[in-house]
Amino acid sequence: MARELLSAGGKEGASSRAICAVAGVGAPTIYHYFGDLVGLHRAAIDETYEQVAEAYLKGAKERGPMQGLRNGWGAFNQFAHQEPHMCRIVIQQILTGNPPASVAETLRIVEEDLSVMYDKGALHFHPHEAVKLLWIGTLGTVCFTATEGSNAENDYPQIQETMTRLVLNALFDAERPQE
Rank of each mutant, 00 (worst) to 15 (best):
A21E: 14
G26M: 12
Y49G: 02
W73E: 00
G64T: 02
L40A: 03
G26Y: 10
F79E: 03
H41I: 03
L69V: 03
R63H: 05
V22Y: 09
L40K: 00
V116W: 08
D46V: 01
A21W: 09
H32E: 09
T145V: 06
Y118D: 06
Y31W: 07
T29G: 05
A60P: 02
P84N: 10
T138F: 07
G10E: 08
W135C: 08
S15R: 07
R88Q: 14
A14L: 11
T147R: 12
C20D: 10
E148R: 12
V116K: 11
L107G: 08
G74R: 01
F144N: 04
G64D: 05
D113Q: 12
T96P: 06
G140D: 13
Q82M: 15
H126G: 10
N151F: 14
N154M: 08
I89E: 15
C20H: 11
A55M: 01
D113L: 05
A101L: 09
D119L: 13
R17G: 12
A18N: 11
G24P: 12
Y118M: 04
A21I: 10
M117S: 10
A75E: 04
A21F: 10
H81I: 08
H41V: 03
I30E: 08
Y33W: 15
N151T: 14
A44F: 01
